[in-house]
Amino acid sequence: MYDFEYHKPTSVADAVKILSADSDARPISGGQTLLPALKHRLNKPTSVVDLSGIAELKGIKRDGDKIVIGAMTRHADVANSAEVKAAIPALAQLAGSIGDNQVRNRGTIGGSVSNNDPAADYPSAVLALNATIVTSKRRIAADDFFQGMFTTALDAGELLVAVEFPVPEKAGYAKMKNPASRYVMAGAFVAKTGGQVRVAINGAAACVFRQAEMEKALAASWSPAAVAGVVQPADDMNSDIHGSAEYRAHLVTVMAKRAVAAAG
């Protein structure tokens, strides 16, 4: 770890002030991604802005037909939330499947969504549920938010404040875990919200993406069998020592089928 300055502001405004003044400052929420990077000296921020003292970033509330989750809400809190379990059980299940106990007790939705790791869980839920990302200065539609591997629409100095999830009629999530890291090797989040079907695929490619053909098939008939025949092209799939692009493409269909089955 290199030396850095440490700040612990108590408001979003103060945090943004520090971050805007210095392009090499970084926010830290749960630290589950940033700290290992710092320890390995892969990252050299001038200062680290700890968001854990900002009360307005924490908590889960139901707001009409939306569930609003503050950026600093930990995975364990989402997994155990009565509101989330009642409204979007697939989201609670997803949060409860991230990493291990330690990770779930530290890692946050804001950190995970801002980080946009291709193998992360949350981005699939955000995209499939057509969530809105609330930031320190604007609202961003899920379709515009995830822009590529570890890249989002967030500007420098812009903080993710909350994620608003419309409550769906049906939603389901299934994933194949990478045998070593147990991050997502290929996952599918399927949702039907206000009659609209969205299918988001994570883990398999450089960035979470919507599977249009599966959406069409499910809109026509909401059943595992409807997606079973949809072949995901292998072209843009990841390939590494854990699995070929062809394997991942295959898994996309299997996971979509299972996600639909789980959604009921």
Binding site: P179, A180, S181, Y183, I241, H242
Partner: peptide, 11 residues
């Protein structure tokens, strides 16, 4: 070494 951490070496 491609399997140089627990991210890639499956214990």
């Amino acid at each position: 070494l491609l399997s140089g951490s627990f991210m890639d070496y499956t214990m």
